[in-house]
Amino acid sequence: MSRKPSDVLGIDPSFRYTLTGFKVAAGIGDKLIAAAAKRGVELKRRRVGRRDYVHGADGIEYLDRLAELPQPICQ
């Protein structure tokens, strides 16, 4: 049985996600990541070969920092 994005129950801090997998699990997109970066909130990524990976703990920290930004982040 394959897992759909709606089956994911949050972000596991001990898991390493591909960037695409993290965006699906967190429910965020490229526009939000770019807008947050302009405000100084960067997503920590590690590049391996041609792929970017996000450690779950770093992703949770990133989402916490996003929540502190004035809303709306994207305009």
Rank of each mutant, 00 (worst) to 15 (best):
A25L: 09
A25H: 09
A25F: 09
A25G: 09
I28K: 07
I28W: 07
I28D: 02
G29M: 01
G29E: 11
G29Y: 04
D30G: 06
D30K: 10
K31I: 11
K31M: 13
K31N: 12
K31D: 13
K31F: 10
L32Q: 07
I33W: 02
A34W: 01
A35Y: 05
A35I: 07
A36F: 05
A36L: 05
A36E: 08
A36V: 04
K38M: 12
K38S: 13
G40W: 07
G40D: 11
G40V: 14
V41S: 11
V41K: 08
E42M: 14
E42C: 04
L43T: 08
L43M: 12
L43P: 03
L43F: 08
L43E: 06
R45C: 06
R45S: 02
R46M: 12
R46Q: 14
R47W: 01
R47Q: 12
V48T: 05
V48C: 00
G49P: 02
R50I: 05
R50M: 10
R50F: 03
R50A: 10
R51G: 02
R51N: 13
D52M: 14
D52W: 14
D52F: 15
Y53L: 08
Y53Q: 01
V54E: 03
V54M: 11
H55L: 15
H55D: 13
G56I: 10
G56L: 11
G56A: 14
A57Y: 08
A57E: 14
A57M: 13
A57Q: 15
A57R: 15
D58R: 04
D58P: 04
D58C: 04
D58T: 03
I60H: 12
Y62N: 02
Y62I: 05
Y62F: 14
L63Q: 02
L63E: 01
L63N: 01
D64L: 14
D64R: 15
D64Y: 06
D64T: 14
R65Q: 15
L66H: 04
L66Q: 09
A67E: 11
E68H: 10
P70W: 01
P70Q: 00
Q71L: 13
Q71S: 13
P72N: 09
I73V: 09
I73Q: 01
